[in-house]
């Protein structure tokens, strides 16, 4: 049953992703490798769309992945399943976590999760860059955007728009 599989996989993503919207990408990338619901290349398109539409990127990309996998019902199931762990955590754990958040185990667990989170994203980045390694203009654009954002701290949507315009111009001149 595709819906049960979606519930299971997206509930896990909601349960185990730490550190903002892009933290869900390693999981979605892994899904593309084991289930073939979408290709890694389609995933990059999905992330691109999810980043420019309103709403949290992590939720949007779940909606899109669900839609790609099993239509409208799939997107509803994936979105809600990803948010459900938050619902339970907030209701059952928030008071407890507040009480225990200075305990030795919770503190050392959170310090351990940080390097793991960095490693998860780094592994995805290596795969993404490897897939684009012959696209020199793309790598240059990535470099340009990083320098730009380090020099001037603007909202993320600003860089999306600039990159989008450069992309359209590239289609106009290069192709």
């Amino acid at each position: 049953m595709i819906y049960l599989l979606l519930i299971y996989e997206f509930f896990k993503i909601g349960m185990f992703s730490f550190g903002g919207g892009y933290a869900t990408i390693p999981f979605l990338y892994h899904l593309s490798l084991i289930y073939y619901w979408y290709t890694p290349n389609e995933l990059t398109h999905m992330i691109a769309i999810a980043s420019i539409t309103p709403g949290p990127v992590g939720i949007n990309v779940a909606t899109y992945a669900g839609l790609k996998t099993a239509g409208i019902m799939g997107s509803i199931v994936a979105t809600l399943s990803e948010m459900l762990p938050s619902f339970f955590l907030v209701i059952f754990l928030s008071k407890m976590l507040n009480k225990y958040k200075d305990s030795f185990f919770i503190k050392s667990w959170i310090t351990t999760l940080k390097p793991i989170g960095c490693a998860l994203l780094t592994a995805v980045i290596i795969n993404l860059i490897k897939a684009e390694k012959n696209d020199y203009i793309g790598l240059l654009l990535v470099l340009f955007l990083i320098i730009l954002s380090v020099k001037s701290k603007k909202e993320t949507i600003f860089y999306m728009i600039i990159a989008g315009i450069i992309g359209i111009l590239k289609a106009f001149f290069v192709w």
Partner: peptide, 25 residues
Amino acid sequence: RYIQGLLWGIGCAVIALILLTIREM
């Protein structure tokens, strides 16, 4: 081709943003 270009550009921005997320973490 223009939609492809747009998605290509935003894809590059996403790579940059993930790198920045790692840096921030």
